[in-house]
Design a protein around this nucleic acid. Structure first.
Lengths: 237, 237
DNA sequence: ATAACAATGATTTTCGAAAATGTTTTTGTG
DNA sequence: CACAAAAACATTTTCGAAAATCATTGTTAT
């Protein structure tokens, strides 16, 4: 007679739903992280345990743990004995993040171009293809989430072969924080820009192993997005 | 990582001592961090709550919090439901850390040379002077802790003016992990090396704003230390 | 003897109550 | 009325007991 297996964790119960299986701390971390990155939790807003507990259906300890990890990731700010807040945003930080992201990616791409093999190239082409199949904005005029994900995947593929796990980790961490800023203001399409073409040019330069050209193109690409965000900036109340 | 703002930490009460003032979670984090960096907690060893509680005189929640932050910093490894371990070490990781550290410092120094003012230069000279007043090894033949601290301060001064808080954070995080490897094997003095002279040369090149020369010197400086560590490597049981 | 299974022990993980801390409101005084 | 001290409230932070999970050992059947 088959013995009942262990319980499978249910992923993301709806916000008000009960919690049949006790949510693991890692789940909680992921959920909070996504809620911050997707700006469902607004920058600077307080994170009250009372509310969080109700919202995420969890006890104090797992919440505290998850928040602590987010503090280390720079997504949550902590003042001792005064509680947690969603990390605030500022023009200065956006600029810092954007510059640092470019510098880190520049290193990684340089290394990847040195070391990358055919498999690496193939992966870039695949990610580019997937990205090109999707349009940047939804019919409603907001940024398409799936496009966002594929965009990140494409950029990561460019330097996946850099050979440094640590560097990849940093790139991802900064890229995440950058994407939060992008989502903050659902920037409208800028007709003067052809993002797909920019991606294609970067792809070509990387595959051709033309490091300087690739980095120059990437820099322009990134800085266009960044100034786009800065132009639509509205001071957070 | 952020230096504790207020609150003076009572430095390491003896292992069996009572805890007159309840230890704050930040204190605990710092103490654990230092114990790992200084290799008082050996790489790969398990971190049992039962022991930690006795050792640090603290409850479960603060310990868990501190460990979680260390996980995010890469100093502690966590397997869910199987507990915490001191992050293991490996030749591969050392090489990755060393390479990444150099790349990050290279960016930061390049930026600092562009933007640095007289105050920045003055600070470098001051840190170099302090460093040169101290010898690398104690009479007992082990690495001198004060020299270590001043060495870090000197290297940080080189790129303190880079203008990017985020980049500085990353540099510090990687530098810390690197220093753990250095401490693992109290490397003996290598007579063929004149570390003070290497530092002086780097200093001169940076002050003279000769970027390429500075980076080339720094690269040699770092790789000498790294190969030194690798040569004295003994596989951790 | 060996593999599958059940029972035991060790350890992590979660939970809410209680203590410590910070914030606001109220009260008392010049 | 202004200002300082004190009380009341809200929130974080700590604590150890209890539940869940993993590792180990012992048992039984083939």
């Amino acid at each position: 007679m088959p013995v009942p297996k262990k319980l499978e964790a249910v992923a993301h119960p709806g916000k008000g739903a009960a919690h049949p299986a006790r949510p693991q701390t890692s789940d909680l971390f992921e959920r909070l992280r996504l809620d911050i990155l997707h700006c469902r939790l607004r920058p600077g807003s307080r994170l009250l345990f009372k509310d969080l507990r109700k919202q995420y259906g969890s006890g104090l300890s797992p919440l505290r743990e998850a928040l602590m990890r987010l503090v280390a990731d720079g997504l949550v700010a902590l003042e001792v004995n005064k509680g947690f807040r969603v990390a605030p945003v500022s023009r200065e930080e956006l600029i810092d993040i954007a510059n640092t992201l470019f510098e880190l990616e520049a290193i990684a791409i340089r290394l990847a171009i040195e070391k990358g093999d055919d498999r690496w190239e193939g992966n870039i082409v695949a990610r580019f293809h997937e990205l090109s199949k999707r349009s940047m904005f939804t019919s409603g005029g907001t940024l398409d989430e799936e496009w966002q994900a594929r965009n990140v995947a494409f950029h990561e593929a460019l330097y996946a072969a850099c050979g440094s796990p640590l560097l990849l980790l940093f790139c991802r961490a900064v890229s995440e924080r950058y994407s939060r800023y992008r989502r903050l203001w659902d920037q409208q399409a800028e007709p003067s820009r052809n993002v797909a073409r920019e991606h294609e040019q970067i792809l070509s330069a990387v595959i051709a192993r033309e490091t300087d050209a690739a980095l120059s193109l990437l820099k322009k690409h990134r800085s266009r997005t960044t100034t786009g965000i800065l132009n639509h900036w509205v001071e957070p109340a």
